[in-house]
Design a protein around this nucleic acid. Sequence first.
DNA 1: TTCAACGCTTTTGTATACATTGAAGCGACT
DNA 2: AGTCGCTTCAATGTATACAAAAGCGTTGAA
Lengths: 218, 218
Amino acid sequence: MRASDKAYEALRTDIVEWRLRPGTVLGEVEQAERLGVSRTPLREALARLSADGLAVQLRGRGTVVSDVSFEHVDDLFALRRALEVESARIAATQGDPAIFASLRDRFLEARSSISGQAANRESYYLLAAELDQCIDEAVNNRYIEQSLRSLRVHLARVRRLAQDDPQRLATSASEHAAIAEAIAAQNPQIAVAATQLHLHHSLEHIKNHAGSERDTSK
Amino acid sequence: MRASDKAYEALRTDIVEWRLRPGTVLGEVEQAERLGVSRTPLREALARLSADGLAVQLRGRGTVVSDVSFEHVDDLFALRRALEVESARIAATQGDPAIFASLRDRFLEARSSISGQAANRESYYLLAAELDQCIDEAVNNRYIEQSLRSLRVHLARVRRLAQDDPQRLATSASEHAAIAEAIAAQNPQIAVAATQLHLHHSLEHIKNHAGSERDTSK
DNA sequence: TTCAACGCTTTTGTATACATTGAAGCGACT
DNA sequence: AGTCGCTTCAATGTATACAAAAGCGTTGAA
């Protein structure tokens, strides 16, 4: 694995998992020493982070971890609506019904077994990620996929703003099952509706269950 | 201006304007000498091009200009539909009517004066870009804006696949005027409809008026 | 004659030294 | 006393030298 990839992965994970909080300055020499790589690959990593929107490069003052606040959540979900609604529509027209029927069953099963356990929560997120991936494959559109990949990084970061409780996860599982169901039934209209509903509830939950990370815009 | 920016701009322009055709290998030393910069900033430029999707980095064999073929146009327009429809909807709800009314008038005026002149065509593209920018400002969403920026680079590249004739430009001007009109009237539904219509006709035109660059997938 | 392995060449990947720019602090002038 | 400008310093931006890896050609043997 290249040193630049290693540095990028490490920094991206640190940012998404809030170990590097918004506003943190990423000095080149400092981070290069911390990650055990030279400045050259580290600079490449910082450039990629900037392209992802996870950091911004201020001329002269260095690179800082980009800000994430509640005002941006609405913006993020507006893009998510645009992309995922269209993706669901396309997946419903040209996806493999068997795959999504199977996913629906797994979501329904997951709904019953969800608890507050961290491991359980993590496995649910993995299942949701699998649905996303299957939709990606059904859509088979490199441009949409790229935009979605960028979006999901930011979503993962925002997730920490809200506290996911078992109640919400169970509801979310139902909504995901409904999306998979509609795609399996090859019904674009219902797939769109289910997606819109899920996004609406997801956004409402985040806005109503603000976490302790509120004080990011210092 | 930084050397890496200079190299990036130069390469991006060369790729978008088809001076560097798809499949061209961008050797680091070769391009560094051609552009008069060192390898370090040039590598940064190549990384940014890869992030944009304008080039792909093959390990060992270097960076090559990414392929653009007619199969991808549908994909590109699927993303464009998702983003621009949502943008038009949002702009219609929170845009400044005066700005878009003015733009509508300018499109209607442009429609009359369009000819086959290259200068005329260029000024029309600038006007269209101005509409895009005003919509961006009305939407005021950094995430959507970033996705759109990436998309537009690819669109500019694809534009060369089709031959724009005065007829199409005049129709396009009418469609753009309709979009601006709907936003000025603060009517989201009509703004969405006008955008969908424009995108449909635009895509049809490209697919029916294939240019001479067809032989890109060698 | 064909396949495989070895080595050479060309390429990218990394490190470090140097240049340059921007920012902050201090001083002098108004 | 406030502001403008200069100096200094620390950070990024660039260049080049070095290392490593991958391709390709050649040569050998089966």
